[in-house]
Amino acid sequence: MKSNLVALAAGALFAVGLVVSGMAQPAKVQGFLDLTGDWDASLALVMVGAISVHATALRLIARRRAPLFMPSFQPRQTKAIDGQLLLGAATFGAGWGLAGYCPGPAFVAVGGASPSALVFVVAMTAGMLVHRQLQARARAVRSPSAT
């Protein structure tokens, strides 16, 4: 139960951070990405603030053997940079620019009763499921005996 309440609090804190920072305002996000127009640099500072805090906390947390509510820390990905990573990031960036939403702010705005955010989250979920289906199909093609 304690673990669930901490998860609830972490989600809420994340949401407050997104709203305070301006990330939940699509027009502001697009102003940040509008390098050739009337550029609003504010959102670069969101990343500066978040990374400063997290990079510092990481060092302190790394001294622990295990997290508070789990037996061990999840290992980080160690894959090299590949085409999938770059193509995926490029695709994500295009969608982020078009709508002004990345995943976190879209969920917060669903709570804020925005119909566009709801459309965005439903479509994003569909995009994730499409990816999963294609992956499962690719695996089945690679090893037909497995199914």
């Binding site: 960036g93 709508a99 995943p103 479509a123 994003m124 499921l129």
Partner: peptide, 9 residues
Amino acid sequence: AGLLVGYGT
């Protein structure tokens, strides 16, 4: 945009 974000991420 949502589809692109879901698939791309």
